[in-house]
Amino acid sequence: MSATMNTALLTVEARALNGERAAWDELVAQHRRRVMVALLADGHSLSTAEELCQETWSRLWQQQQRGGLDRLELPGLAVTQVRFLGRDERRAGRVRQHAAGEEASVDFEAAVISRQQLSRVEQALSRLSAQAQRVFRLAQHEQLPHADVAALVGLSVQRVRQIVFEVRTVLRAELREDES
């Protein structure tokens, strides 16, 4: 069943690679937030992030139209593109930092997650209930839409989102504890 869902997702990307505008709209809606989060985490303001996201999707679309895209791995490709644009804008001095200022930005590419942190996260994941593990795996690793996860596990979408939120809260606490 999950393989069928994955095939459905790939089909959207395949349709986008064939130049279908509706498929691109669908992919933008699906990955827009992840792309914006990457820019906000890099220290850009919300308005700059929105502009650069728009520019990123526009460039990807144009690249596909020119036949320059033979694969479409999202959100990774869009995140890479938007961060490149973000660095470019910062070099040109055209961006406004968000309220927290320049010091808030972090070079996540250079960030190192310690072995202890990974170990703690892994242990925390293993302590979850079987249902929480399954929901989180489907939503996080297989990147299924929450509605599909809900259909697979027989829960409501709201319940699936709550489980994912609770799991993420636990994992983030583990990361913070190790940092401190």
Binding site: I113, Q117, V121, L171, L175
Partner: peptide
């Protein structure tokens, strides 16, 4: 979120 994604 980005840190957690990197860890995962």
């Amino acid at each position: 979120e980005v840190l957690l994604a990197a860890a995962l």
